[in-house]
Amino acid sequence: PQLADQKTLARQIYEAYLKNFNMNKAKARTILTGKTCTPPFVIHDMETLQLAEQTLVAKMVGSAGALKDREAEVRIFHCCQCTSVETVTELTEFAKSVPGFSSLDLNDQVTLLKYGVYEALFAMLASSMNKDGLLVAYGSGFITREFLKSLRRPFSDMMEPKFQFAMKFNGLELDDSDLSLFVAAIICCGDRPGLVNVAHIEGMQESIVQVLQLHLLANHPDDSFLFPKLLQKLADLRQLVTEHAQLVQEIKKTEDTSLHPLLQEIYRDMY
């Protein structure tokens, strides 16, 4: 009976993942490996960026083109924020579908999302990356790593650590069913600062982590160390988010850019 419960939990989490996220690894890999009819539009310099803005991401580049006269770095930063807000919204819906999450104390739900969404976002972002770049605009565009690196500082420091993480993370060759459980384990984490009902959340986390371990053994029988390797990735993601939050604070202080109110809430008093 316990095994049946664990399989049900794994299935529920995977279904919630497929339902709530617009992009997933299977879709991204199909595009990145050239198996689609129309390849993504490649953004590799200022000219191709402008072309992409006129077509692919017109909706994202500010209402009535409010940002059209701003420098490229600011426009790209704005697009990153829009994508982050969308993913946070998707992650919230996903979290609500994880069995037990919605019955938690509302303050604890807020805390789990505040601390978990960026770790989950960067784990999932790896699916849309290869060593040369990143899928954008729902997979209709591909922005090169070199172009992102060529932006002026501090904006050029934004994505490179995510690429470095993604290349190692993608080496683990997880599929969407593994990722769904990994993302659920990130969100339902018992050691976030300020949690009220720690024991309850630790219990939820234990169930999910146990299911993840069993699922990895069945889905990757040739890699018996995959589970401990993934646990290490949890620590790496925490570090990645800490550094990202510091960079965003620096950008907010030194650059004339706005930060979406939802992202402000998440970053405020984070670490």
């Binding site: 209402s63 829009c82 807000v85 946070v88 919204t89 919230t92 609500k96 505040k114 008093d269």
Partner: peptide, 21 residues
């Protein structure tokens, strides 16, 4: 905590899409 995270709180309760940046 909910006071300081009004948008997250709103998302949790009704799933409204946040306003544009």
């Amino acid at each position: 905590l909910q006071e300081k995270h009004k948008i997250l709180h709103k998302l949790l309760q009704n799933g409204n899409t946040p306003d544009e940046v």
